[in-house]
């Protein structure tokens, strides 16, 4: 077909491959149409397409490892990610429904197909947009309730997920910082504080989402519609998730609203405990917030090396220069 020749080959390949598994995504579906790539980071490929069944078109999302098979070292793996989302779905966590997990014989690489969920993920609109003014006061409590539910998932069902104590994670990120070979007195201060205040290994390790924050949540008029991006899930201290959503980087300018730029700690913690989560250790949650600012800061500063080697893009350079935002946040957390 002439139209296919002009399309980039990856797109044409994916379109052919998805069409051939259409019947597995939904019984009765005969093909797909309207495939297009959505913006996505380097660690993921996101595609949107319509599943066709007669005249009916059902929007779907394909999440695929970049290039089909590259998986980052920290990522849980696409198949595990799909299994996590399915398990979360079964216990009432709002997630995009997983419709089909790719198998090697599909020739589509590694990944899975999800139902399309309509909603807003842009953090700035959640914290400031008029459309969310009414629901905003309820979001922190909802986040607490959802996290409590996520933390009831049984780690034993996911034996390949990474298991780390707070002290091990701290040592790992200290190593990552040292590897940047750029002196940052503020980070040193943060590492000292984190070492001195490090929580003990959790008595009952839980399944931790790992990236539960404004930006990775989809919102609608009633609140949280879907928890996205499960790729950093691991087993550890459940307080990590409560701290990470408070990191200032995800407040989108609303610095006085610690929970995602939209809510207060009291609501987050109350929702968490009311929904059956373990008693909140406020000191540990604060520790994880400091850890989160440090971790995102070290990640940003690592962009400098990436910029000079594998990805000399302007965007990469600009993210590297966001390291100082985290230094400022750490100063506000530790020296104010």
């Amino acid at each position: 077909m002439e139209a296919d020749v002009t399309k980039p080959s990856l797109e044409a390949d994916l379109e052919r491959g998805l069409s051939s598994v259409a019947g597995k995504i939904a019984a009765g579906a005969s093909g797909i149409s309207g495939l297009r790539r959505l913006s996505g980071g380097a660690s993921q490929e996101l595609w949107r397409f319509d599943l066709t069944e007669g005249e009916t078109r059902t929007p779907m999302i394909l999440r695929r490892a970049p290039g089909g098979d590259r998986v980052s070292e920290t990522a849980a793996g696409l198949e595990i990610e799909a299994a996590l989302i399915q398990a979360a779905d079964r216990i009432g966590v709002p997630v995009p429904p997983v419709r089909y997990v790719l198998s090697p014989k599909d020739g589509l690489g590694r990944g899975f197909v999800m139902g399309f969920v309509e909603g807003e993920t842009l953090g700035g609109r959640i914290v400031k947009g008029e459309a969310f003014a009414e629901v905003r006061p309820r979001l922190a409590r909802q986040c607490g309730e959802i996290l409590a539910r996520i933390h009831t998932l049984d780690p034993a069902d996911f034996p390949t997920l990474k298991r780390s104590t707070p002290a091990e994670l701290l040592a790992q990120w200290l190593g990552a910082y040292r590897a940047t070979e750029w002196p940052r007195p503020v980070f040193e201060l943060a590492f000292r504080w984190l070492e001195r205040n490090c929580p003990p290994p959790p008595t009952q390790p839980r399944l931790v989402h790992g990236d539960f924050r404004n930006g990775n949540l989809m919102f609608g008029p009633g609140g949280v519609r879907a928890v996205l991006d499960w790729e950093l899930a691991h087993v550890g201290d459940p307080m990590e998730d409560l701290g990470w959503i408070c990191v200032n980087s995800w407040r989108f300018g609303m610095v006085h609203k610690p929970v995602g730029g939209f809510g207060d700690l009291g609501d987050l913690f109350a929702g968490y405990e009311a929904a059956g989560g373990p008693p909140v250790n406020r000191a540990a949650a604060k520790w994880w917030e400091v850890f989160g600012s440090m971790r995102w800061g070290v990640m940003c500063s690592g962009m400098s090396a990436a910029f000079r080697t594998v990805d000399p893009s302007v965007e990469r350079a600009v993210i590297a220069r966001r390291t100082s935002e985290n230094e400022l946040d750490l100063m506000r957390l530790l020296a104010d």
Binding site: V186, R321, S324, E325, E327, L328, D329, M331, R332, A335
Partner: peptide, 26 residues
């Protein structure tokens, strides 16, 4: 030391991200 780290960090933000909300507060 604290004054030095504040001054140095604020000077970085003045270049990197002068509209960062937490910077305006700090």
């Amino acid at each position: 030391l604290a004054d030095h780290l504040w001054a140095t960090t604020l000077a970085k933000l003045a270049v990197d991200q002068p509209t960062y909300a937490a910077y305006r507060v700090a």
